[in-house]
């Protein structure tokens, strides 16, 4: 008997009688999801700004990071000339990316997380390997909790997708918080309110 059959028959023989799966109503009246989102995201180490258009995003990113050569933009409607020096399929080349600008699909007020599907990244490694991450999110796409988030995304639409909540961090040395573990050292979120 294969391991598969062995496991499945042991599970079948040992499982308890079928217990019903309940359903729950998670709807909630939320007064100010934008405010909660901003405060929560700031609380977990992200920065948030509200902008009127993408031009403002470009201006701010260049102000902070200067050199355009090491910045990769994946927001289609943002006017940007990506450097041809970075090959997005090559790890060694990608490691040189200073900043990545990507578009988020849904923001979650209760925890500051933003859903980013693979299509918005180009390469799955991009939001992790870049030194600094910039996410552009429409201010109208913020929902109160994870329940509403899952109701409005399709996790199977792409082969990969991720909720990103703040910059990468660790507290593995004496529980002392350090921002910038293996992923991006900073996360700047621009809420687009056009």
């Amino acid at each position: 008997m294969s391991a598969r059959e062995k496991i499945l028959s042991a599970v079948k023989g040992n499982k308890p009688e079928l217990l019903p799966l309940q359903t729950w109503d998670w709807s909630r009246v939320e007064t100010d999801v934008r405010d909660t989102f901003i405060k929560t995201l700031q609380g977990i180490g992200g920065t948030v700004s509200i902008v009127k258009d993408l031009q403002q995003v470009k201006q701010r990113v260049l102000e902070v990071h200067g050199d355009e050569k090491r910045i990769i933009n994946r927001v289609a409607s943002l006017d940007w000339k990506n450097s041809d020096k970075i090959e997005i399929e090559n790890s060694t080349s990608m490691e040189k990316i200073e900043v990545a600008i990507i578009e988020g699909q849904i923001g979650v007020a209760e925890n500051g997380a933003i859903w980013v599907p693979e299509d918005a990244m180009g390469n799955r490694a991009l939001p992790f390997i870049c030194q600094h991450l910039v996410i552009v999110l429409s201010i109208n796409k913020i929902v109160p909790t994870m329940h509403q988030a899952y109701a409005s995304i399709d996790v199977t639409a792409n082969g990969f997708g991720v909720f990103i909540a703040g910059p990468s961090k660790t507290a593995d040395i004496e529980q002392s918080l350090v921002i910038g573990a293996h992923g991006a050292r900073s996360l700047a979120v621009f809420l687009l309110d056009s």
Binding site: G43, V108, E110, A113, N158, G161, V162, F163, I164, S168
Partner: peptide, 10 residues
């Protein structure tokens, strides 16, 4: 409130 990355592999 949530881990920094919740990655969904399909």
């Amino acid at each position: 409130p949530i881990t920094t990355y919740s990655s969904h592999f399909h």
